[in-house]
């Protein structure tokens, strides 16, 4: 996996109601911002699923988003690759506005690997075919080349022996590891994880988190919606706490263990820790 240095720094400054503090850039000892989220709103009828959310994700940064269910954390993650369409604001990924009709969202998505709570492997394709489908169709990669790469990725997630079985034969933990490999097969710059371990039995959570930790160590930019505070402490550069569609508190993981401020956060942490 190659770490990306943001090639496009010429993103026009967004006129915002409350400009987000600069969290990225060399002054902060971090990479350039690769995802910019500016004053984002998302409404479901009367409900404000996202209520003026602004933040930057730096290249190479690992961000964990926590919060109670219905807090908007998954909605925010899914807005980044436009699985949810936001109502106001801007989300800019690698210099491209994902909601700009002139941008090809399919090209933007190729840079955003997505891992779902429910795995969503293609059941009619073998594990190997799940990995090679997108590179062969979207990048014009040759079948042999794609398979070689896919086998390497499967090795990386410790599941190469299952290359030729169908996903229905695998355990949840195995499926999720394959799903991570499938997302990596497109060689994305950013990986999005939407509660990747929430559907897993306790004994399978570890194997998936292991794979994610390895990925983090390689320098991948990762945005993870998860309740795994142990994982956050281990790999996160920054944790965002969301409630009712807003980012209430953010900081390094230690902050959440040692010095949480917001009463909602303290209450939430007391429930999950």
């Amino acid at each position: 996996m190659t770490t990306t240095t943001n090639t496009n720094n010429s993103v026009a400054p967004v006129s915002g109601e409350n400009p987000a503090p600069a969290v990225c850039g060399s002054e902060q000892g971090k990479g350039a911002p690769i995802v910019r989220i500016r004053n984002v709103y998302k409404f479901y009828d009367q409900l404000r699923a996202l209520n003026n959310v602004s933040t930057d994700i730096c290249s190479g940064e690992k961000v964990v988003i926590i919060g109670p269910s219905g807090s908007g954390k998954s909605t925010l993650l899914r807005s980044i690759n436009r699985l949810e369409v936001i109502d106001r604001g801007e989300i800019i990924v690698d210099g491209k506005n994902v909601n700009d009709p002139n941008e090809d969202i399919n090209l933007i998505r190729q840079n955003l690997g997505m891992v779902f709570q429910g795995f969503n492997l293609f059941p009619h394709k073998t594990v190997l075919q799940n990995l090679t489908l997108a590179p062969t169709h979207l990048k014009g990669m040759k079948k042999e080349e794609a398979e070689e790469m896919a086998l390497k990725l499967l090795e990386k997630v410790n599941i190469s022996e299952k290359a030729h079985v169908y996903p229905g034969m695998l355990s949840g933990g195995q499926q999720q590891r394959v799903a991570i490999a499938r997302a990596l097969a497109m060689n994305p710059k950013i990986m999005l994880f939407d509660e990747p371990t929430s559907a897993l039995d306790p004994e399978m959570i570890g194997e998936v988190l292991n794979v994610m930790e390895n990925l983090a160590r390689e320098g991948m930019t990762m945005i993870v919606v998860s309740h795994e505070m142990g994982f956050a402490r281990e790999v996160a550069d920054r944790v965002l706490f969301m409630d009712k569609g807003e980012i209430l508190e953010e900081g390094p993981p230690e902050h959440f263990y040692e010095n949480p401020q917001h009463p909602r956060l303290i209450q939430f942490l007391s429930q999950i820790l």
Binding site: L83, N106, R109, Q110, L112, M114, N120, A134, H137, A183
Partner: peptide, 22 residues
């Protein structure tokens, strides 16, 4: 399952490819 469609679209397949392949 809508998750199948989301997985396919997330990889960068367009609607037509998603319909045909998945």
């Amino acid at each position: 399952d809508k998750g199948q469609i989301e997985a396919s679209r997330s990889l960068g397949f367009n609607r037509f490819q998603t319909m045909r392949l998945i």
